[in-house]
């Protein structure tokens, strides 16, 4: 699905990530941890084609990423849902239109009932007409998750999705991601939050990847 083979990424003359070889298998659930500035966000950007590896090989859905055209990358992103900590929206459009945006840009209509169900599933059913600036941090994170999954992506990448949330809201978001994984989605969450990882491992077989000294390792010790 997403596979790195001895890949590296350099920025500004220095190597940020080195010798990365790993494969995100379909239906897997991974956490990515590491100190601030270690390259977690960069790794996620490589995973959805915003950045290109400067060495080695990266394949997205069995296609070498460097061989993809700009249009191909856009189409690949429709198979990958992304949730950022500082999730951005189109502030002039209501929440429902923002959540349906991936369908809109793909030229597909969002059935009202399905959209309503999805908003209800993330607990935002009453806020369909609200504008993004009026939403709280937790509401924005759940709205971003709804937007990330509306196309039925194969992979969901989340970059510090609970960074601005209290513990209750973090758990709620985690529950949604766990549910998605049980539906067969591949999940990768970059986070500092060890409690969140412990909570997830209590519910499913999540694997933890750790960035250390520019390399990504599989964390062996229990958290």
């Amino acid at each position: 699905m997403i596979a790195f083979e001895n890949a590296a990424y350099s920025y500004g003359g220095g190597e940020l990530l080195s010798e990365i070889s790993l494969r995100l298998a379909p239906g897997s659930f991974h956490f990515l941890t590491g100190p601030s500035g270690s390259g977690k966000s960069t790794f996620l950007k490589l995973c959805y084609g915003e950045l290109m590896p400067t060495a080695g090989r990266l394949t997205l859905f069995d296609r070498e990423v460097r061989a993809l055209s700009r249009d191909d990358i856009a189409l690949t992103r429709r198979r990958i849902g992304v949730v950022h900590q500082d999730c951005q929206f189109l502030d002039h459009l209501p929440l429902a239109a923002n959540v349906a945006l991936p369908l809109t840009v793909a030229g597909r209509a969002a059935p009202a009932a399905d959209l309503s169900d999805l908003l209800g599933w993330v607990g935002l059913g009453q806020l369909a007409d609200a504008l993004p600036p009026s939403l709280s941090g937790g509401e924005r994170q759940r709205a971003a998750l709804a937007r990330a999954i509306i196309m039925g992506p194969d992979v969901i990448l989340a970059d510090e999705p609970t960074g601005n949330l209290d513990w209750d809201l973090s758990l709620r978001l985690l529950t949604l991601l766990v549910e998605l994984n049980r539906m067969g989605k591949t999940i990768l969450i970059a986070t500092h939050d060890l409690n969140l990882i412990r909570q997830a491992k209590s519910q499913l077989a999540a694997r933890v990847l750790r960035i250390s000294k520019r390399r990504i390792q599989l964390a062996g010790a229990d958290l």
Partner: peptide, 16 residues
């Protein structure tokens, strides 16, 4: 620029 970033994130092509 922010709008363009969001549109790209959700899979919009340049032509769109």
């Amino acid at each position: 620029a922010q709008v363009i970033k969001v549109l790209r994130l959700v899979g919009a092509r340049d032509s769109y």
